[in-house]
Structure formats: C-alpha cells, structure tokens
Design a protein around this nucleic acid. Structure first.
Lengths: 153, 153
DNA sequence: GTTGAAATCATAAAGAC
DNA sequence: GTCTTTATGATTTCAAC
C-alpha cells in the first residue's frame, strides 16, 4: 500500500465506476498497472465492494431511524446480531460499548412500518428494550474520509 | 420506474461495477437499453453515485464512534451542520428528533484522535454537549435494503 | 426498445526497467 | 516485482431503425 494505492482508493471511493483507464490517467499509470493494483486491493480485503448509492425516498424508504438495543441480562450478543441481520429493514448494525449492546440504522417506508419493525426488534430473544431516534434529515452519509487515504498520507 | 428499473437498481447496489452488458443479461434487456435506463436513474437523482467500500482499518481508521450532539438554547442547526461537515472525520451526519439535534458517525485512527475530534465538536458554536458511543464491531453496514427495490415490489 | 458500428475499455501475455 | 506495451475480445456509446 503506497501513495498510488491510496490515490486509487480515494478515486474509487469518489467514483466506484471509474474505468481503469480513467484511474490510470489520474494517477499516472497504465490501465494494466491500475488493474493489477485494484485486483490486489480487492484480494487483500482493502476494497470490500462497490455499491450504487440510491436515494432512499426514491425507492420508497422515506423513514430512517437509529435504534439503540438494550440487552437482557442473559442475552447472547451473537444470536441477537444474527436476528438483527435477518430483518431487511436493518441497514447497519453496530455492536457498541455502553448501556446498549447494539445500535442499528433502519430504513422503512412509513412510521407505521417503523412501528412494526420495533415490534419485531423487541420480539428478538435477548432484546430487553429499544430506544428509537427518528432521523429528520440526512445531511450527509458515508462520506469518504480522506484522512487515511489521501495521496500524501 | 418500473420493475426492470428496480431490478437494475438492486443489481447495482449489489455490484456497483456491474457492466451494462451484465445487467442486460440479468434483466433481459440489451446493454443499450440498460445504459439508457441507468442514465435516466442517475439524471433523476434516484442513483446518486457509486462508491468503493474500503475496510476502514486497512486505511488507518480503526476507531468508529457514534456521537450525539446536544444543541445550546440559541443554536442554529444549519450552522452546526455546516461546521460538522467541515470535519473530515465525520462520515455521516443525521439531523434527528429528540433531545439531541444531530447524531454523527466519526471514524478516526486512534482513541487519542477521537478525543481530539470530541474537542473540535464541542468547540462548534451551538454545541452544548456530546455523548459518545464507541463502536466495538460493525456487524454490517450500508446493506442494500431490498424492501423497496425488489423485482416484485 | 433493438440492432449495428466505432471508440473505448478490460484483460492477459509479453518483455523492459 | 512492478510497469509498459501489445493484442484480442468485450463493453460502451451513439447512431439509425
């Protein structure tokens, strides 16, 4: 992982569909060289995937909420995590330090559906209590943090 | 936006580097047709971008935290949001309902840097108090929610 | 929507630094 | 080892239909 790799990574975080030729022009390498570098970054798990980002409301998911999940005394965190993973509306799942055991981000169509999702969450074995914070607006999300991937890092 | 568009969107959320030819084979259209559809989805703001997902630790960002930001009585939320956006370590920023005004996700290299980030956050005009929850592990993150984009939606 | 054609790109093999 | 060049097939992209 050298400065060139970091430049390539930064470019692919900006535009995940950039062609190898594009990337090569940007960093001053041939497309082949970039291709090989990206392949290695993928193989070593540095780049884990490429995803299109979709406007949630456009696909009928206008309600976002952040939910703290408090465990029961006897909760098995791994089991809870698996159960959380089975709910498609749970988009992200973080195991955290503190009172709660997990914080999850859910996206649903309506507050009605949010209510149903909360019901499903509470029915999971090991979940004692949830605390829901409704997102009013997303200022930005998943923004590339260039602190670690800049060309001069 | 028809079922074909939704299938294409779902496929691009799975693999943002899928070729138009691939997508065409998957949904039963020519590459040209897919190309045109995707162009329209981009132009209308349904698809907002494509991003490589990078393993945070691999780029020296091993510490993730979720931070609640409590406003002062006279806080201007828009100004606070702008100030939050200026910190590169703030990866996501949600305006929320409830006691706090924002919840942000930050990624930094070390807990030392987290401490410095908290200092920067507290120094923002309009920020009264922060509450930090450290992420121990990310079970999954930004997972495609197929509820709204499935072929049979 | 499709097909067809030209430009561009991906990809692997070859050899040069 | 990494890069460039080279070469071929696939893909993109824009016509015209």
């Amino acid at each position: 992982m050298d400065a060139l790799d970091r430049q390539i990574i930064a470019a692919l975080r900006e535009n995940g569909r950039a062609t190898y030729a594009d990337l090569g022009r940007k960093v001053g390498l041939s497309a082949s060289a970039v291709h090989e570098r990206v392949g290695k970054l993928e193989a070593t798990g540095v780049i884990t995937g490429y995803h299109a980002v979709v406007d949630p409301s456009s696909v009928g998911l206008g309600v976002t909420a952040l939910i703290s999940i408090h465990p029961t005394d006897t909760a098995d965190d791994d089991e809870v995590a698996v159960a959380l993973g089975e709910l498609v509306e749970v988009e992200s799942c973080y195991r955290v330090a503190g009172d709660e055991s997990f914080i999850v981000k859910v996206r649903v169509a309506t507050v009605d559906e949010l209510e149903r999702t909360l019901g499903r969450l509470r029915r999971i074995q090991g979940v004692a209590r949830t605390r829901t914070t409704v997102v009013l607006s997303t200022r930005f999300e998943g923004r590339p943090n260039t602190a670690g991937v800049g060309p001069d890092a």
